[in-house]
Design a binder for these strands. Structure first.
Lengths: 245, 245
DNA sequence: CTCTACTACTTCTCTATAGAAGTATACATC
DNA sequence: GATGTATACTTCTATAGAGAAGTAGTAGAG
């Protein structure tokens, strides 16, 4: 009886250790989003585990949102879809009632020294420089979001050679194709503020109108911070639904 | 080979049908929150299914938040805990840093005709009357939430004979013990408004400060609406965290 | 060329069984 | 009374195997 070739604490259940191992492979970039991972059978043969145990490990990773199973086809690395996430909070609707793809309108893209707050969020060295983008998100010619984006220069230098104006409306695909950086997860913090002059003018608000502020830190598969952004949106268009059980 | 005694569409997988059946029993009040449901073994014998299939059904209900499993002890009906849910959105901290139990301060408890909006939320008949409670939630003598609560009179009449002032700070246990009504789930919608005069005074805010408004519809196990409430809180104490994958 | 049937793969459902591990209680021993 | 022990439960982990059901490509019939 051959001992299964799995690293990790041998006191943990086998399906746990397999899940950990696969998660590690994912982090290390063994497969890219959209790729198929080995089938239950292959994994069972590789590891010497029973099919059911392998299945349990995969179920765990599906639960965590890392994998996706398709009956008859295989198990795939999930491609995280983001730019819908932000907008699920808002009642933004296009004139015809469909859910809109907000257009990006770049105001500025420069190299700058990040504030201490941003630097710590991005875990940058003290001397590091950053690329910063200011832009609007526009629906039907109405500005609905104002955004401030910060990226570490070393990873994203290729962006400066690009004409962002004619690039697409979504940044994460550009990060991927132009800079080889894949955003795999993110944390968001949502707060409410009263609009300052700049934001008020940007969004076309009256004085002292409340705004929603969303700070997002996006990370790669291995957990290193890739992008920090702060978005301002009209609070009167905001609503968040949740179910408690 | 005896056909399993399960209702429902026979084209559905067995574990699905068992889960549906158990969910129905739960709705019908066969067990109360905290009760133990039959063990895997008992269920397997009752239904004629294999233990693994029963296990899969129970896992599904655990996933839905209805059940809770405890190693070596059994499977139990989950007791939904609510009043922490509301406050998870707020950065309310007591002076000593611990998470506080907000004190309830009743302003009024009367019988009234609900507005059309509330009536529809509670699915009440047009002639129906309602009990309405106005109260503050107070931490360290600072009002942090202002609440307006509506209950259908027929189910909650017993409340009017009660001295709510000396009852506890949480309403749902009172609903249970005094009126026999168990809150099993709820939906919340979160929006931002600018404080009107009443709310501003209640929470001690300056003019035109933003406030968070939380509307909650609480339901019993069988899905009928039990309580509708609207809460106002200081927006500057609000922050919502989420993870995207 | 088009359509069908077959084949080889995948995940999904279900069964049966065994033992590990956690929990609670009754009972004997000190 | 306190302490350990045996026992009877529970869920948890793992194995082995069979067949259903969905998917994709290929060979063959028309």
């Amino acid at each position: 009886m051959s001992a299964p070739v799995l690293k990790g604490d041998h006191r943990l259940p086998l399906y746990q250790r397999l899940a950990d191992s696969l998660r590690e492979d994912l982090r290390a970039g063994r497969w890219r989003p959209g790729d198929r991972v080995p089938s239950e059978n292959e994994l069972a043969l590789d590891t010497g585990l029973a099919a059911g145990t392998v299945r349990q490990a995969l179920a765990k990773l599906v639960d965590e949102g890392l994998l996706e199973r398709r009956h008859g086809r295989g198990t795939f690395v999930r491609r995280p879809s983001f730019d819908q996430s932000l907008f699920r909070f808002f009642r933004f609707r296009s004139i015809d009632g469909t859910k809109p793809v907000p257009v990006s309108r770049i105001r500025a893209c420069t190299i700058a020294i990040p504030s201490r707050y941003v630097r710590e969020k991005l875990q940058m060295k003290e001397e590091g420089r950053a690329i910063t983008i200011r832009r609007f998100r526009v629906i039907d010619d109405r500005p609905v979001l104002s955004e401030e984006i910060w990226l570490p220069e070393d990873r994203f230098a290729a962006l400066m050679d690009l004409d962002l104006q004619k690039a697409g409306d979504l940044l994460y695909p550009i990060y991927d194709t132009e800079c080889g950086q894949i955003v795999a997860s993110a944390e968001e913090v949502l707060t409410v503020e009263t609009a300052d002059d700049d934001v008020r003018q940007s969004l076309g608000l009256e004085a002292a109108a409340p705004v929603i502020v969303i700070e997002r830190l996006a990370r790669s598969y291995d957990g290193t911070p890739l992008e920090w952004r702060r978005s301002w949106g009209r609070a009167d268009q905001f609503s968040y639904h949740t179910e408690i059980r």
